[in-house]
Computed example of a mutant assay.
Amino acid sequence: MRQNRCFLQAMIIILIVALIPIAASAQLDGHGPDAWRVTGVAANDVLNARMGPGVDYPIIETFAHNERGLEQITCVPFFTMAHYQAMTEEELNRLPSRWCLMRSADMSKAGWVAQRFLMEDFPDESMAPATSETGLMPQGQVVDHAKDLVRELYERDFLAGLGGPDPLNPAMLTQYFSTEFAHALISRPPGASVLYGAQDFDGSVDEPVADPDTPILRGTTILHVDMMSFGRPQRATFLLRPDAAQAGNPLRIIRVEHEGWSFP
């Protein structure tokens, strides 16, 4: 009986979405792009759209591997940006994988898909979001700008060991990090280096590279820095966005992720 009720509720949602052309916002969560596209699906495959949020629900539609202009109605687990920011890392990790109710650009079909197969769809995919510093740069130039910033950060850190200025000095932090990141680093410094992921480092650092699948996702540039320390391979992932708290909205690091932990 419970399964039948869930089935009926999901069917009602699908019918409402498919048949009523409401000019809804891009995402009921209160944030997000106006349009989405399918990503991570092979060219000879399709993205299954289901009657409900999970693989236990039947497939009712499919989206092409390169489908664009999708409208996101809502996602579950449901949370606003305020909820997300208030949750701890442990609470976020306990959440089930996210599913989103999507509708095609022509409103002819709709269904639930796993969020990991969605990314922001720009009107011109070669263009990234505009900022005062970068202007309306081609995506490749924004990524190159991010690489230069992260590369300089590691170079400055190396030179600091030879007596040069320390880029992690509080007075220099906002040259590389967002204002929020800098405040967090000063008020609650992590127990390990945000650059190397450990207290000690002895090895080599590779050039920053863009994420091969999503170099820019929802306005955030994603870079990886591979390194070898004490004979062990490691990776640092940098997320960068324009910082509205600084004059000119410069591109700055907003988050660094290492194996098992991240900051802030």
Score class of each variant (00 low, 15 high):
Asp202Cys: 12
Ala198Ile: 07
Leu217Glu: 15
Ile186Ser: 14
Ser204Gly: 06
Phe201Lys: 02
Thr220Gln: 13
Gly219Arg: 06
Val209Lys: 11
Thr221Gln: 02
Ile216His: 00
Leu223Ala: 07
Pro189Glu: 05
Leu195Ser: 09
Leu195Lys: 01
Met228Gly: 01
Thr221Leu: 00
Tyr196Val: 08
Ala184Lys: 14
Asp226Asn: 14
Arg218Cys: 08
Asp200Met: 07
Ile222Tyr: 01
Ala210Tyr: 02
Thr221Phe: 01
Thr214Asp: 09
Pro190Ser: 05
Leu195Thr: 05
Ser193Asp: 06
Ser193Thr: 06
Val205His: 13
Pro212Gly: 10
Val225Ala: 12
Pro208Tyr: 11
Val225Gly: 05
Pro208Thr: 03
Tyr196Ala: 02
Gly203Tyr: 08
Ser204Met: 08
Ala192Asp: 05
Ala184Ile: 00
Val209Arg: 12
Pro215Val: 13
Pro190Glu: 01
Pro190Lys: 05
Ser193Tyr: 02
Asp213His: 13
Asp206Asn: 15
Ser229Glu: 05
Ala184Trp: 03
Leu185Trp: 08
Phe201Met: 03
Asp226Leu: 11
Gly203Ile: 06
Asp213Val: 14
Asp206Val: 04
Val209His: 01
Pro212His: 08
Val209Asn: 03
Met228Arg: 09
Gly197Asp: 04
Val194Asp: 01
Ala210Leu: 10
Met227Tyr: 11
Arg218Pro: 00
Glu207Lys: 12
Thr220Lys: 11
Ala192Ile: 04
Ser187Ile: 03
Met227Arg: 12
Asp202Gly: 04
Ser204Thr: 14
Pro215Asn: 10
Ser204Glu: 13
Val194Ser: 04
Leu185Gln: 07
Asp226Gly: 09
Val209Gln: 11
Pro212Asp: 12
Ala210Arg: 13
Ser193Asn: 04
Gly203Asn: 05
Asp213Glu: 15
Pro189Phe: 03
Ile222Arg: 15
Thr214Lys: 15
Val205Cys: 11
Val209Ser: 06
Val225Ser: 09
His183Met: 08
Pro208Phe: 13
Pro208Leu: 09
Val194Gly: 07
Thr220Glu: 12
Pro212Phe: 10
Gly203Val: 08
Pro190Arg: 04
Met228Trp: 00
Gly197Pro: 01
Gly197Ala: 04
Asp226Cys: 04
Met228Ser: 15
Pro190Tyr: 02
Asp206His: 05
Ile222Lys: 14
